[in-house]
Design a protein around this nucleic acid. Structure first.
Lengths: 330, 330
DNA sequence: CTGAAAGCGCTTACAG
DNA sequence: CTGAAAGCGCTTACAG
């Protein structure tokens, strides 16, 4: 049977109030009493129960991160940024997975309703403005990561600018027929990167054509998989005429695409998107997203908002940076 | 202000017991009453608070996964296996990060003490037998993932056999001077893979030499980084005599090692370890670890144990399988 | 089908 | 420095 505060109090010959004080760093407990309680508690394997504490104290000291299963590939970096803030503050972090297939908004609502945390970090969730507005009624600090909105503190990327930069770079190198290796078109980052691609073409007075947007058949994880990249690139390499260059919507897809080029013995210049930690070693020219900084800042904003709910909202958009490596220099 | 069960009860003109029943799928509530309560609750944004519920009901319906920050690269797969079980059972999953630098055992103890979940999945935590034994006193279902112990349900890999298979394959191809590209030697999987490497050498009557164990300088994440692999491989390629082949302790390191070979324009046959989803596309010959199955089984064991704490302990060791791709066939 | 009441394991003014 | 007591927001026999 798990021990309760009563067991400890009885064993130590004190009231439960005193035991409680030991765990709430109230310095009004006599040192000898404190030592005695701690040693008894340790021996009996006691520690205050998380939910009883929260119910009684109304303090949570906890933030929650909501992440889609999908977003794994830059998740570690974000997490590092988040934890570098939290460690010093002694705030607990809970990670909740959101299943992209089960109605993201409903799941988020369910989670918020339960009032588990002092604040929530929504990572790559891309809710609509209307949905975001609805969340206001829970009246709880929310911070968006990899998404921007004027309604909440948010740290995002300018995917349109990123798509533009990637494409413009290829155009500047003299390639005119550039294919967009796309993910699921309903995914917000895909849409935006595609828009950037279109903008760059427009600027160079090159007509946009829908059949230059190529998808793989595998559509799990919004099409952000090696497999999907492989499939799409195979289609491209077996098409006639061949394009002159490729703008790939993500590094993971690009890895699949690279293999397809290798298998077919055709190399096309390619720029992709994300700059994962492996990308440097694979030689991907890619648009950098500063995940660590993102995690760091979003978390800091959230903590500040928890402290001061009425501060002005702070939405920050990272400028994309193109990193040139070998994949574009063939 | 967040609403409580009292607010809803008052608004609906019923007692709090009735409101509670609606949320506990007791079918004794009159349908019209139930509808009324649900619509009022929805309107007021009410939902029972997680921790009050758990305190009162003593039910948790929740399991917790403890993961080191490090283990990201096969984490998604494990998670998929876990969730495929949990979704149907309506059990909540919480993920807690464990910081490898802050005393893993102490953190685990802290978490268990708080009695948050019905059971815990310890992923890649590699506690000592003694530590594992100490955890018994919390008397809570525990399941080990990527670790084996007779004390708990566990699903692990035979890293020694895997190291052996990788090395034996290279030996069979006629390479005698094989270097081990190591991670941090204090890490359990590294030690075991190294042991397998030694066993294979021994079997072929090739003396083991400590200077054939090469480490990179970067030691974060137990040395399982691209950077560390790159550094180590650079050392190797600048040594004299060159080895004939390489056994690399992880795929992520192998990616760095591949770049080093590329930069130095020397290619050595290499076998590595993990079979990450990218490895197929990079052409790594590697030892496969079935993460999905692992997540699936460990979770199933945990659920069963929660249902029946006295069932016999079930520890399962996956047999490693060598997947041949291009990196070893130079 | 519903309500009154006890209880879950804590915290925290209040009083001494 | 410590204790008695009220209260946090729920659930659940028990009674009707």
């Amino acid at each position: 049977m798990p021990k309760t505060i009563y067991d400890i109090a009885k064993a130590a010959g004190v009231s439960i109030a005193t035991v409680s004080r030991v765990y709430n760093s109230s310095n009004t407990v006599k040192e000898s009493t404190r030592q005695k309680i701690l040693s008894i508690a340790d021996e009996m394997g006691y520690h205050p129960q998380a939910y009883a504490q929260r119910l009684a104290s109304k303090k949570k000291n906890s933030i929650m991160m909501l992440v889609p299963v999908m977003s794994n590939h830059f998740f570690t970096e974000i997490l590092k940024g988040t934890q570098d803030i939290l460690v010093d503050l002694n705030i607990e972090l809970t990670i909740q997975n959101v299943n992209q297939e089960l109605g993201v908004f409903r799941q988020v609502e369910q989670i918020l309703k339960r009032q588990w945390a002092d604040g929530y970090l929504l990572v790559s969730l891309h809710l609509s403005d209307q949905e975001l507005k609805k969340l206001k009624r829970f009246n709880v600090p929310l911070s968006l990561l990899d998404d921007v909105s004027p309604l909440y503190d948010s740290v995002g990327f300018d995917n349109v600018a990123g798509g533009y930069k990637a494409t413009a770079y290829l155009l500047k190198k003299g390639y005119h027929d550039i294919v967009f290796l796309s993910g699921k078109l309903s995914a917000k980052p895909v849409k935006e990167r595609l828009q950037g691609y279109k903008n760059a073409l427009l600027e160079s007075r090159i007509p946009f054509s829908n059949n230059r947007v190529i998808l793989g058949n595998s559509m799990d994880r919004d099409g952000f998989t090696e497999k999907s990249g492989y499939e799409a690139m195979l289609k491209i390499l077996n098409s006639d005429p061949l394009p002159e260059a490729v703008f790939c919507s993500s590094d993971i897809k690009a890895i699949g695409a690279l293999k397809a080029m290798n298998d077919e013995n055709i190399t096309l210049p390619m720029v992709s998107y994300d700059n994962l930690s492996i990308s440097e070693y694979i030689g991907l020219t890619t648009v950098h997203q500063p995940m660590y900084e993102m995690g760091y800042h979003a978390t800091r904003h959230l903590i500040e908002r928890i402290g001061n709910p009425d501060a002005t909202i702070c939405d920050f958009v990272h400028d994309p940076e193109l990193i040139i490596r070998s994949s574009s220099e063939v």
